[in-house]
Design a protein around this nucleic acid. Structure first.
Lengths: 343, 343
DNA sequence: AAACTCCTCGAAACCCTTTTCGCAGAACCT
DNA sequence: AGGTTCTGCGAAAAGGGTTTCGAGGAGTTT
């Protein structure tokens, strides 16, 4: 009696292929995988048989045997955030090209859930893990007693022995302010978001570095509150009341910049003629629909995700000690109408 | 000689646990899984041993044996879109609670890539697949010769024998217009996006149903172009030039509504006093930062994802014929300041 | 014709876990 | 004391594939 009802069980097995082709099971395996030691005619018979009954190799069995699953875990702290998705896309893209599939786990900011997902991933014998955070603030390490390599993206690990990839926020706002200065501005203000975010602090630092390098000073204090359009509007109103001479505003996010643009418009200040504005994040929905379109800093998040995937690949393959620590990845300036008229 | 160098191989196996606990392998298995037939003392010995060497059960082996992997595939046509993510979250959430893990595959709108991912998922023996599209236009079915159940979310399958869950766009804009009428508006216009989208057509139909039910007519033609703020601005300018009497505008998206709000402000029309505005999608970043905040239609996408997961669950468990066809899921109205003053 | 090489193929072991089934021994009954 | 019922545990098979190694046959050489 056959172990499986013939011609009905959907996932045909290799032994059925072998039987149909009139060869032994190992020969069928070799034929399917292009290993040597199989005559051309035999190989063809096997391939035809496989085709005929719609054989699909069972990855579970293969993985079990060879000791690697060809899967990785993508552990996000929060899917909601706008920054996670591009990283996800980049990573999925890079892995997809290498026959690796991605388990998506969303811990929703909960440590317990994160541990639970981590355990599930290890049980499934993933070959590696990418941890994606929603902020650039350091996050607790998963630890080093894991049987697989881990790469942290966006939110770096707080353990310097881990490998973390995060955008260079300091360089980003430096770039923005250097651009403003190159545009002939000298009375530059900075409106940004929640001061408890490392991103806010890093970007302020970048602004000040660029100003100092040009022998300039910030006009007014850096203004912190929340990452919202509303705050951008309010802050700009206050700023222009106190410092009407300002001729450029570097913003901590595109949302804030959108609010700033609104207030400038309300006050009759022309952008970029009277005041130049630069955002941060290059969130296209916001930047390309602004009036005028918004110059911004793009963190190349998709590229970041791709690089995280590649770093993990290397760590998986070689199991040699990969370079460690936090790598700050370059960002780029995208110039639009809010800093240069007529584009 | 042990098959594995002792106390080094990271993934400890059950047989090592058994050896350490001084029992046979099957007994260890029973002890770990809480099956009967194991004395309490023995069970404790086994659990202690497992704890000691950090045993994690190999899901690959278990899956291979029991014939289901406890994984599902999430096949998206495009991760970029704003609508896919909430659905993803809902689905991942629902599955996560049920010990099921999710393979994320992004076909990026490419049919070839989709087929490639589908094959990979089947090779990995997923127990089911959710297909998430980025538009509500029907999409080609994956077919019925698949060994696992499939549920389509957002973009319905073009095959009525498939199960599809999609938001009820017609009801959505009906809801929006009924709300405008309830607010005392009667001279209502409609500005929407790309006419090649089913969403645009469905929403126009809903608008007209609600108007007809109240004995009203649309002011001006429905205005189609693209789903952007820019178009919202331009369309509103044209509309108010030709039909200055308009007292409410139902928009096909929040982005369009934001543009409409901008133009109304430029023209000195008060919102909602002179003109009420309602958006669509309830994209919080846009709605809650608008001036005034934007009333909108929420498609409950996270809930949609969760329901898709549950439907797939049922189909996987029972393998009974699930209900088929396209299910239109209810949407809800979120009222904010753009239709009612003072909230 | 014998010896040798090369090429194809199959037997068997292995990956890790679950499950069925039967075997002992202990406890219970009469 | 002898028979019966539990109880706790282990031997073996199963799940689907890969790999090593050896066997047999054909072709080549001396």
């Amino acid at each position: 009696m056959p172990t499986r009802p013939p011609s009905m069980g959907y996932p045909a097995t290799l032994s059925e292929v072998a039987r149909l082709a009139g060869v032994s099971l190992p020969t069928a395996s070799k034929a399917m995988n292009g290993r040597g030691d199989v005559a051309a005619a035999t190989r063809k018979r096997v391939l035809d048989a496989a085709e005929q009954i719609g054989f699909t190799p069972n990855q579970l069995a293969r993985s079990l045997l060879v000791g690697r699953s060809g899967t990785v875990g993508l552990l996000t702290s929060d899917l909601e955030g706008r920054f996670v998705l591009p990283i996800l896309m980049g990573a999925e893209d890079a892995f997809g090209a290498g026959q690796v599939n991605v388990f998506l786990c969303d811990a929703r900011g909960d440590h317990i859930r994160e541990q639970h997902h981590l355990k599930a991933l290890l049980n499934r014998r993933v070959d590696g893990i990418i941890v994606v955070g929603r902020q650039t603030d350091p996050r607790p390490s998963l630890g080093h007693d894991l049987p697989v390599p881990v790469v942290y993206a966006y939110a770096p690990s707080d353990d310097p022995d881990d490998l973390s990839l995060t955008p260079d926020n300091e360089a980003g706002s430096r770039l923005a302010v250097e651009h403003l200065i190159a545009c002939g501005r000298s009375r530059i203000a900075h409106i940004t978001g929640d001061p408890s975010y490392a991103a806010a602090q890093d970007r302020v630092r970048g602004v000040q570095q660029a100003l100092a390098a040009a022998g300039l000073e910030l006009h007014g204090e850096a203004m912190f509150s929340e990452w919202s359009e509303r705050w951008g509007r309010d802050a700009a109103a206050v700023l222009l009341d106190r410092h009407p001479e300002v001729d450029a505003i570097a913003c901590g996010s595109d949302q804030i910049a959108r609010g700033v643009l609104d207030t400038l418009r309300d006050l009759g200040r022309l952008v970029p003629d009277d005041v130049a504005v630069v955002g941060y994040d290059n969130w296209e929905v916001l930047t390309t629909n602004a009036r005028p379109e918004l110059t911004s800093i793009d963190a190349n998040l998709q590229q970041l995700g791709r690089e995280a995937a590649l770093a993990l690949f290397r760590a998986m393959d070689s199991s040699q000690p990969e370079p460690k620590g936090v790598q700050y990845k370059p960002v780029r300036l995208v110039i639009r109408g809010s800093t240069i008229a007529h584009r």
